[in-house]
Design a protein around this nucleic acid. Sequence first.
DNA 1: GTCGCCGCTTGACGTGGGTCAAGGCGTGAG
DNA 2: CTCACGCCTTGACCCACGTCAAGCGGCGAC
Lengths: 229, 229
Amino acid sequence: MSHPPGTSCVAIVPLFAGLSPEEQDEVATYARPLRRSTGETIHRPGDDVSHLLVVHRGRVKVSHLSAGGQERLLRVLEPGDFMGETAFVTGERPDDLVVALGDVELCSFDHRELGALVQHYPDIALRMLRTVTGRLDEAERTIADLTASDVEGRLAGYLIDLPTQRRDGRVVARLPLAKKDIASLLGTTPETLSRKLAAFAEAGLVEVQGREVVILDPVRLEERTRPAP
Amino acid sequence: MSHPPGTSCVAIVPLFAGLSPEEQDEVATYARPLRRSTGETIHRPGDDVSHLLVVHRGRVKVSHLSAGGQERLLRVLEPGDFMGETAFVTGERPDDLVVALGDVELCSFDHRELGALVQHYPDIALRMLRTVTGRLDEAERTIADLTASDVEGRLAGYLIDLPTQRRDGRVVARLPLAKKDIASLLGTTPETLSRKLAAFAEAGLVEVQGREVVILDPVRLEERTRPAP
DNA sequence: GTCGCCGCTTGACGTGGGTCAAGGCGTGAG
DNA sequence: CTCACGCCTTGACCCACGTCAAGCGGCGAC
């Protein structure tokens, strides 16, 4: 009742996409807004969680802290994505670090209330299952990649999968993250990433200027994806 | 009606544990048995799948084939575990290789029929969500481990997590897989695994004889889990 | 404005572990 | 029984990449 129609988290979230507008309104009743600004941490390992968080505006990054204290970026959540499902579904405490990438608005759902909602609208569980399954597949591909390809291969794949746009007849992609974060995502270090990008540029595959990457030779880039036969 | 009571897949499977015995009987109606013997492949990348498979007896290994054609072991399924949920939930084709580790019995559920079941008993979806979420967490921990720890660290962790039993006052674990498979699971090669095990033995941490591993020094083994500070 | 911090790059170096190759051992087939 | 094949181990080699260190440019704080 207090949420302006159309701007609530609920409307845009795939999780609730199966519900009728009236049902969505009901769900919206349970949503509590949450706001964080650039660099603020939203969740820190060990915090116990009693809420499922849905990203409404902005992006957040989810990393895993390993025993050594170093950070490994796992994934970036965009509007419509959720997190904290582990705590909701099993009782487990997730040991992830979640940080706002920019100014962010989130919606928070209390576990108890969400539980009731799921009971009432089983479709929510199915949609949750769908996205978690997708994440699992992606994670398992990452695992395979980490042992099968070298850094060049993974970087090549990453660049190819980036959304691009044409400008003056050139195909240009914009890096969605700081290079150090991309390094972490690819399981390497900023130093190595820097070198590999330089090597690609040297070889005439790409052209890098800040966060803009011009894809010069998609074919040879694609070739680097697979190991030499 | 044709399944001997108590021996059907359905009874032992967590997926259906929330149902009443009568409901389980109904579910059992849809199950089709499937039998494979040692080394036979149950699913090969690219096969399209219209069934969810539940392991009833024996074990199967699930690997991911990378572009280079090499095999990376992802997980081992034991009785009660299921696979093929990706195809069921999203329409995607899983590119996994599934091979019987010994003689295996499986139960197969057609997607269409299973879909109807899930509609009728939403609890099934919730349980599926629960196990997929667990797998995701595990996969993400593996990802973090692959970049944070070295092979020794991962091996140490693997050995520690192994179920053990006491014999003559010694703590002994039995490797549940061929060493080459363990190597794949840990993201390394049989050669390196062999060397690392030898190194642990050398250091007096373990004693290896075939598939039996005597854990001599759990404390120092545990220490190797974390990187040197 | 100036300072300091942070992200990025480049260089030099050391090494973990992958690869190739060879030999031993156990097991199942014939 | 013998053979052959697959698993495991050990040795030698070498290269990709992580680490340490230094220098640079941009940006926000003050």
